[in-house]
C-alpha cells in the first residue's frame, strides 16, 4: 500500500486511495468503495498516459506551435501531418531503415530465446557439478556495462579473432573474418550475446519453478532431456517466452548505441533509430520532429506487444499437474 499511496498522492490525487477500508458492511458506501481499486488503476493509467498523449498531440503540430503553447491548448486548425511527412520522405529512406531494423530485431529476438531456453533448462534440470556457481557467474555478467564490449567486438567483426602462439610466430585463427563489419548481422549477433545473461536469468526463474513431479513422471515414461525440453518445458513456458520476446524485441528495435557503433559509415544498413536521431539535426535544430519520430519508431514494438500479450494466459500448468 505504502508505495501506491505515496506515489499517487504525489500526483495530486490523495483522495480516492484513502477510502480503501476493509470489512463486509453491505451498504451503499461499500458498493462505492468496491470500485476504488479499479479507480486507482485507471488513475495510474491516466497519469501514465499524459506524457505520451502530449507527445502524440505535439507530433501533429509544427515547430512554432510546439514552442508557443502547451499541447493541451491545441487548436484543430494547427494540426498538420508535416512532421510525419518529413520522416516518411527522409532522404535516407524510412522504408529501408525499417527493413534494417527488422533485419536486426527479429533474429536478435528469436535466436537468444532459443539459446537461452536451452541453457535455462540445463541450469535448472540437468544435474552436473558446479552448476550453481556457473549459473551465478553467468547471471552476474548482467552487471557488465555493455559499452566496455563495443571496441573488442568491433575489432572481431572487422578482422576476426586470432591467437598468436608464443615463441613460434604462428597465428591460429579462432574466428575467421566473415566480413561482418558494417552489416546488420554484426548488430544482431552482438545483441544475441548481450541478451544472454538476462534471458537465462528470466527463463531459468520460470523453468526451475515448474513442478518436479512433471519431470519425474516423464523420466519414468522414458523421455530423454531433449524430449522433455521440446514437449514439456517449451509449451509450458510460453508466457515467460512471450515476456522475454517482447522486451528483447523492444530493446533491439530501439537500440541506438550498438547499431551506431557496428554499422558505422555504412548508411545503407542504418536502422530507424539512427535515421530519426539524424533528422533531429545539428544542435537539435529540428527537435520538433522527434515526437512524430517516436511514434513511427514505437509503432512496430506496440504491434508486437499486442500480438504477444495474449500469451499471458492463466492456468497453463493446470492441466499438466492434474494429468
Amino acid at each position: 500500500m505504502s508505495a501506491t499511496t505515496t506515489t499517487l498522492s504525489g500526483t495530486g490525487q490523495p483522495g480516492p486511495s484513502s477510502a480503501g477500508q476493509s470489512g463486509g458492511i453491505v451498504d451503499r458506501a461499500y458498493q462505492f468503495l468496491r470500485r476504488i481499486p479499479t479507480g486507482v488503476l485507471w488513475l495510474i493509467v491516466v497519469v501514465w498516459s499524459i506524457p505520451t498523449l502530449g507527445l502524440f498531440i505535439n507530433s501533429f503540430r509544427d515547430r512554432d506551435a510546439q514552442r508557443a503553447t502547451g499541447w493541451w491548448k491545441v487548436k484543430p486548425s494547427e494540426l498538420t501531418i508535416d512532421n510525419y511527412d518529413t520522416i516518411f520522405s527522409a532522404r535516407a529512406g524510412l522504408g529501408r531503415s525499417l527493413l534494417n531494423s527488422a533485419a536486426i530485431a527479429i533474429p536478435a529476438t528469436i535466436i537468444p530465446i532459443a539459446i537461452a531456453a536451452f541453457a535455462a533448462y540445463g541450469f535448472a534440470w540437468i544435474p552436473f557439478r558446479g552448476r550453481k556457481g556457473l549459473f551465478i557467474a553467468t547471471v552476474a555478467l548482467l552487471a557488465i556495462p555493455l559499452q566496455v564490449a563495443l571496441i573488442p567486438l568491433l575489432q572481431m567483426f572487422v578482422g576476426g579473432a586470432s591467437v598468436t602462439l608464443p615463441l613460434l610466430d604462428k597465428t591460429i585463427v579462432l574466428i575467421p573474418d566473415f566480413d561482418l563489419a558494417g552489416t546488420t548481422t554484426s548488430v544482431w549477433l552482438t545483441h544475441t550475446g548481450f541478451a544472454m545473461p538476462f534471458a537465462i536469468f528470466l527463463l531459468h526463474n520460470y523453468i526451475s519453478s515448474l513442478p518436479k513431479d512433471l519431470f519425474e513422471a516423464a523420466r519414468i515414461d522414458g523421455a530423454d532431456h531433449f524430449t522433455i525440453f521440446w514437449r514439456l518445458v517449451l509449451p509450458l513456458s510460453i508466457p515467460v517466452l512471450a515476456a522475454f520476446a517482447i522486451f528483447q524485441f523492444l530493446w533491439t528495435w530501439n537500440d541506438y548505441l550498438i547499431a551506431n557503433t557496428m554499422i558505422g559509415a555504412n548508411a545503407s544498413q542504418q536502422p530507424t533509430t539512427i535515421l530519426i536521431a539524424n533528422l533531429a539535426g545539428d544542435f537539435g535544430r529540428n527537435e520538433y520532429i522527434l515526437p512524430a519520430g517516436a511514434f513511427v519508431q514505437a509503432f512496430v514494438p506496440l504491434v508486437v506487444f499486442f500480438a504477444l500479450q495474449r500469451y499471458f494466459v492463466r492456468g497453463l500448468l493446470a492441466g499438466s499437474v492434474k494429468g
Binding site: 568491433l154 551506431n260 558505422g264 548508411a267
Partner: peptide, 23 residues
C-alpha cells in the same frame, strides 16, 4: 561518395577507429 551523418559522432568515431573500422 557516401556521406553518413552521425548524431553521436564525437563518441562513435573513437570506437570506429579503435575497432579498426574507420571511414
Amino acid at each position: 561518395v557516401e556521406y553518413t551523418g552521425d548524431a553521436d559522432w564525437e563518441a562513435n568515431i573513437n570506437t570506429q577507429v579503435e575497432g579498426g573500422n574507420p571511414p
